[in-house]
Design a binder for these strands. Structure first.
Length: 568
RNA sequence: CGGAGUGUAGCGCAGUCUGGUAGCGCACCUGGUUUGGGACCAGGGGGUCGAAGGUUCGAGUCCUUUCACUCCGACCA
C-alpha cells in the first residue's frame, strides 16, 4: 500500500478527553475516529487492518480447536430475553427499541439466548453433540459510563463462543480446551497476561475464568499470590481465614453509651480494641425483578471491606444501591449504630463467614448512640463470603502473600451448565431416547478491546509499537526525499519486490519532509522500517526496529534479502 | 444516580466578566522555495457560536428552559 493513497489522518494534538496511551495513540495515529463521543468509534483503514489481523488470530486458533464460526443477527427479539429471564436482569445496559409494528427488540450485548435458540431448532440428538459455535460480531452495551476509547465503548467487537454437551464432564473438557486455546491466542498476540478466577456476573453459571492482560491502566483489580499460581479477580478472590494478634476484648455483655462513635476508627479508639473485633454493618438496598427491593444488612469485621459483587451474589440481587438515612430510619435502623443481631424483621441480614462463631464482638445496638459489647455471633443467620481480599492477606491455596495488580479483562470463559438450556428448552435425546437439557459453556474475547490492551502494553512516548501478529503492516518503507531520483527508484524496487514476496508493506511515497514522515512512522508503530535517505549515495540504507528505535545500516544491494531474513 | 465542568471551523482553543458585523494554532486548497527529525513565504476556502425561547436598536456574550458530552464519585453507616 502506498501511503499517499491511504487514509491515515494522523494528528499532532491529543483529543481533550483521552488520558490513556491506547486511546491517545489510536486516535492520533488515525486508527479510529470518535463518533460524537459517548463510546462509539469508527474504524479507519489502519484500525480496520489491525482489527482484522487480531480477528484472524482468534479465528485460526478457534478453528484449530474444532470450533465453527457462525454469524447471528445483531438485532434480537425481546421475547427471547424474556424467556431466559434476562430481560430485566440485564437492566439498563440492554438497548431496547420497537419496530414499526411495535414489536420489541434489543441490540445483543451477548448472544446466549440467540445461540441457544439456533441450536434448539437444529440439534435433537446426542449424536450431534458436542458442538462449539462462535461468532466475531458487534455487540452493544449501553454502559453507564463509557470511557478510555476502545477499552470501554458501548459498541464493540466481541468473539463469543458457546459449546453444547451431553454431560457435565464433556463440558469441562471443552472448558479446559478453551482455556488452552485462549492462552495460545493471547501469546500469539504478544500479550503478557494472567488467567484468574472470576465472578460470573450477568452471564450466570459457575467456575469462570478471566484472561487478564496486565497493565497499570486496567480497570480490574486482580489478586495474585507471591507463592503460587493463584490469581483471582477481586470480585471472586478468597483468602485463608484472617487472625488477629491483639487479644479478644474481655468485655461483658453490656450496652454502652457511645455518642460520637459512628465510624470504625472512632469506635476502635473509644473501646481501645482492634477493628478486628468490631462488627461493621453495611446497609444496602438489593434490587430484584419487577421493581422489588429489600434493605439488606451486610455484617463484616471492622478490619475488612465489603466486596459488593460478592454481596450482591449472596442475596441473588440484580444490583445493590445505597440507602439514604431517611430510608434507614423508616426501616427502623439508625446509621452508625446498626447491628445484624437484633435487626428489624423487614430487613435481611447476611453475615460474613469470618464472623461465624466470633466472640467478644462489639456491635451497634440498633439504638441511637449505643453499642453493645461481648457479643457472640452464632445465631441462625445467612453466612456468606462477602469480604474483599486485602493486600497482605494469606493465600488460601499455599499461605503465601496476596497482592493486588491491575488488569484488562480481555477474555472470559464460563461453565454455564443448564442455566440457559433449561428455561429455553434446549434439549436433546440421549442414548435411551430421553430428553435432557444440554450442558453449556460460553467463551468470550473482547476483540476491539484487545487493540487497546496491546497498545497499553506496547507503546512508548512516541506512539504505538504493534506486535508481530497485530501490526497493520509488516514493514514500512520510507523514501526520505521523493525528488531524489535514486532514492525513489530504490524505494519502488524494494516495495514491489517485497510485496511480491508476500510481505505487507506500507510504502511512504509522500512529498513530506523526513521529520514529518518519521513522526508518523513512530506514531503508527509498524514493527520494522526501511529508510532510504541521504546515505544512499554511499550505498547504504537503514533498517529500523520500532521497539527501542534501533537503527542498523545495511547495504542498499542487500536490503531486500536482509528484510526477508529479519521478518521471518 | 450524585457532584463538578465544557459546548465557538475537521481537531485544539481564545473571545463571554464589561452586548456593537467571529478570531488564533493545527489540518485543508493554490503558487513558489525547501527535503535527515512535525519547514518557509504569499494567497485562499471553511461557522445555523449545542438547541429553543426571552431581554435589547443590536446577543457568541445577559436571562430562562433544554439537550449533549467530559471528568470525579458510586460503599465501610
Amino acid at each position: 500500500m502506498r501511503f499517499s493513497r491511504l487514509l491515515v489522518p494522523t494528528t499532532k494534538e491529543t483529543p481533550n478527553d483521552a488520558t490513556l496511551a491506547s486511546h491517545i495513540f489510536l486516535i492520533r495515529g488515525g486508527f479510529i475516529q470518535s463518533v460524537g463521543g459517548s463510546g462509539l468509534y469508527n474504524f479507519l483503514p489502519l484500525g480496520k487492518k489491525v482489527l482484522d489481523r487480531v480477528r484472524n488470530v482468534v479465528k485460526e486458533e478457534l478453528d484449530n480447536a474444532g470450533c465453527q464460526e457462525v454469524s447471528l443477527s445483531f438485532v434480537t427479539p425481546a421475547s427471547l430475553w424474556e424467556e431466559s429471564g434476562r430481560y430485566e436482569k440485564y437492566g439498563k445496559e440492554l438497548l431496547r427499541f420497537k419496530d414499526r409494528k411495535d414489536n420489541e427488540f434489543v441490540l445483543g450485548p451477548t448472544h446466549e439466548e440467540m445461540m441457544v435458540n439456533l441450536v434448539r431448532q437444529s440439534v435433537k440428538s446426542y449424536k450431534q453433540l458436542p458442538l462449539n459455535l462462535y461468532q466475531i460480531n458487534l455487540k452493544f452495551r449501553d454502559e453507564i459510563r463509557p470511557r478510555f476509547g476502545l477499552m470501554r465503548g458501548r459498541e464493540f467487537l466481541m468473539k463469543d463462543g458457546y459449546s453444547f454437551h451431553a454431560d457435565e464432564a464433556d463440558m469441562k473438557r471443552e472448558f479446559d480446551l478453551m482455556e488452552e486455546t485462549y492462552k495460545k491466542i493471547f501469546t500469539r498476540l504478544g500479550l503478557e497476561f494472567r488467567v484468574v478466577e472470576a465472578d460470573s456476573g450477568a452471564i450466570g453459571g459457575s467456575g469462570s475464568k478471566e484472561f487478564m492482560v496486565l497493565a497499570d491502566s486496567g480497570e480490574d483489580t486482580i489478586v495474585v499470590c507471591d507463592g503460587c499460581d493463584y490469581g483471582a479477580n477481586i470480585e471472586a478472590a478468597v483468602r485463608r481465614e484472617k487472625t488477629c494478634d491483639a487479644p479478644v476484648p474481655q468485655l461483658g455483655k453490656e450496652k454502652i453509651h457511645t455518642p460520637d462513635a459512628t465510624t470504625m476508627e472512632a469506635l476502635s479508639k473509644f473501646f481501645d480494641v482492634d477493628p478486628f473485633y468490631l462488627v461493621k454493618t453495611v446497609a444496602m438496598r438489593a434490587l430484584y425483578d419487577e421493581g422489588k427491593s429489600q434493605i439488606v444488612l451486610f455484617a463484616i469485621r471492622g478490619s475488612d471491606e465489603l466486596q459488593e459483587v460478592k454481596a450482591c451474589n449472596a442475596v441473588e440481587a440484580n444490583e445493590l444501591v445505597e440507602v439514604s438515612e431517611q430510608e434507614l430510619e423508616e426501616a427502623g435502623l439508625i446509621a452508625g449504630f446498626m447491628s445484624p443481631l437484633n435487626a428489624p424483621e423487614s430487613v435481611r441480614v447476611v453475615i460474613d463467614n469470618a464472623l461465624k462463631g466470633a466472640t467478644g464482638m462489639i456491635c451497634g445496638a440498633n439504638e441511637k448512640e449505643y453499642h453493645t459489647t461481648g457479643n457472640t455471633i452464632d445465631g441462625d443467620f445467612d453466612y456468606s463470603d462477602i469480604v474483599a481480599v486485602q493486600e497482605g492477606d494469606a493465600c488460601a491455596k499455599c499461605g503465601g502473600t496476596l497482592r493486588y495488580t491491575k488488569g484488562i479483562e480481555a477474555g472470559h470463559i464460563f461453565q454455564l451448565g443448564t442455566r440457559y438450556s433449561e428455561p429455553l428448552g434446549c434439549t436433546f435425546l440421549d442414548e435411551n431416547g430421553k430428553a435432557k437439557p444440554m450442558v453449556m459453556g460460553t467463551y468470550g474475547i473482547g476483540v476491539s478491546r484487545l487493540l487497546a490492551a496491546i497498545i497499553e502494553q506496547h507503546h512508548d512516548e512516541k506512539g504505538c509499537i504493534w506486535t508481530k501478529e497485530s501490526a497493520p503492516f509488516d514493514l514500512y518503507v520510507m523514501v526520505s526525499n521523493i525528488k531524489d531520483v535514486a532514492q525513489l527508484a530504490l524505494g519502488e524496487k524494494v516495495y514491489e519486490t517485497l510485496k511480491a514476496a508476500g510481505i505487507d508493506v506500507l510504502f511512504d511515497d509522500r512529498k513530506d519532509r523526513f521529520g514529518a514522515k518519521m513522526k508518523d512512522y513512530e506514531l503508527i508503530g509498524i514493527p520494522h522500517a526501511v529508510i532510504i535517505g541521504k546515505k544512499l549515495s554511499d550505498g547504504l540504507v537503514e533498517f529500523v526496529t520500532r521497539e527501542g528505535m534501533v537503527k542498523e545500516e545495511v547495504s542498499a544491494d542487500e536490503i531486500v534479502s536482509y528484510v526477508q531474513e529479519r521478518l521471518c
